[in-house]
Simulated assay, not measured.
Amino acid sequence: MAGWIHIRGEPSGHYRPKATKEDEEWPPKFWRLILETDSQPKVEAAFADARRFGRIRLVNCAAEDIKSTTPLIENGPDPVIDKDIFTAEWLEAKILSKKVPIKGFLLNQSMISGIGNWVSDEVLYNAKLHPEQYTNTFSSEMIKQLHKSILYVCQTAVDLLGDSSKFPDEWLFNHRGVKSKAAITLPNGAKMIYLTVASRSSCVVPSVQKMVVEFPAEVKKEDLNGGEDAESEKEIKPKARASNKRKAGVVEDEEVVKAEEEKLVKDESKGKAKKAKSTPKAKVGKVKIKRALSED
Results as ranks from 00 to 15, higher is better:
Asn188Leu: 10
Gly189Tyr: 04
Ser202Glu: 08
Gly177Asn: 11
Val205Pro: 11
Pro187Ser: 01
His175Ser: 02
Ala183Val: 02
Lys191Asn: 13
Pro187Leu: 00
Val205Trp: 05
Leu172Asn: 03
Leu186Asp: 14
Lys181Ile: 03
Lys181Phe: 05
Ser180Gln: 14
Leu195Thr: 09
Lys191Gln: 13
Thr185Tyr: 08
Asn174Thr: 06
Asn188Asp: 15
Leu195Val: 07
Pro187Trp: 01
Leu172Pro: 06
Thr185Lys: 13
Thr196Glu: 15
Lys191Pro: 11
Ala182His: 10
Lys191Phe: 03
Ala182Gln: 15
Asn188His: 10
Ile184Pro: 15
Val204Phe: 02
Lys179His: 12
Thr196Cys: 05
Val205Arg: 01
Gly189Pro: 15
Ala190Leu: 06
Val204Trp: 01
Thr185Gln: 15
Thr196Met: 03
Ile184Thr: 12
Tyr194Asp: 12
Ile184Ala: 05
Thr196Pro: 15
Ser180Tyr: 09
Ser201Arg: 04
Ser180Lys: 07
Arg200Met: 00
Val204Ile: 06
Tyr194Gln: 13
Cys203Arg: 00
Ala198Lys: 04
Ser180Glu: 07
Leu172Asp: 03
Ser199Asn: 14
Ala182Val: 07
Ala198Pro: 14
Ser202Ile: 06
Lys179Ser: 03
Ser180Ile: 02
Ala183Cys: 14
Ile193Thr: 06
Cys203Trp: 06
Thr185Asn: 11
Thr196Ile: 03
Asn188Tyr: 04
Gly177Ser: 08
Tyr194Pro: 03
Cys203Phe: 11
Ala183Ser: 09
Ser199Trp: 12
Asn174Glu: 12
Ile184Leu: 13
Gly177Val: 05
Ala198Asp: 15
Leu186Arg: 00
Ser201Thr: 13
Arg200Val: 02
Gly177Cys: 04
Ser180Gly: 09
His175Phe: 15
Ser201Lys: 02
Ser180Val: 04
Asn188Gln: 02
Leu186Glu: 10
Gly177Trp: 13
Leu195Asn: 12
His175Val: 01
Met192Glu: 15
Ala182Leu: 09
Lys181Asn: 12
Ser202Met: 08
Leu195Tyr: 12
Ile193Gln: 02
Val178Glu: 15
Cys203Tyr: 04
Ser202Gly: 05
Met192Ile: 03
Ala190Met: 12
Ser201Phe: 00
Val197Arg: 01
Asn174Trp: 11
Ala182Tyr: 09
Val197Ile: 09
Asn188Cys: 09
Cys203Ile: 02
Val205Glu: 05
Thr185Asp: 13
